[in-house]
């Protein structure tokens, strides 16, 4: 299956892109995708504890089981206001 991955805020600078796609095995979890992304973009690794993960428009835990076509987003802590 394939999922899209979007980066926001300074994660775009750290990865050099706003969006990418990943091919994953059926049953893969959000954490599997995260590990794959950090492997491709190692500058994200030191920020793991503060990285927020969303699928669509909702935050999801690392054990969330991904589905084909999911739109995943990675971003740093939010700063509205």
């Amino acid at each position: 299956m394939r999922v899209s991955v979007s980066f926001f805020s300074y994660f775009q600078d750290l990865t050099g892109c706003a969006q990418t796609t990943e091919a994953l095995a059926e049953g893969s979890r959000l954490d599997d995708l995260y590990r794959r992304i950090v492997g491709r973009f190692p500058k994200l690794a030191p920020l793991e504890k503060s990285t927020l993960l969303a699928v669509g428009v909702d935050y999801q835990p690392r054990d969330y089981v991904l589905r084909d076509g999911d739109e995943v987003s990675l971003f740093p802590p939010v700063q509205g206001g």
């Binding site: 926001f8 805020s9 300074y10 775009q12 706003a18 969303a54 987003s73 971003f75 700063q79 509205g80």
Partner: peptide, 23 residues
């Protein structure tokens, strides 16, 4: 709520601690 902010400095060439780019 996923909103972020980036400082725009007065001094030309000054940079925030971490550079960010708008989506």
């Amino acid at each position: 709520v996923p909103i972020w902010k980036r400082p725009v400095f007065q001094r030309a060439g000054a940079r925030p601690r971490r550079s960010r780019r708008s989506a």
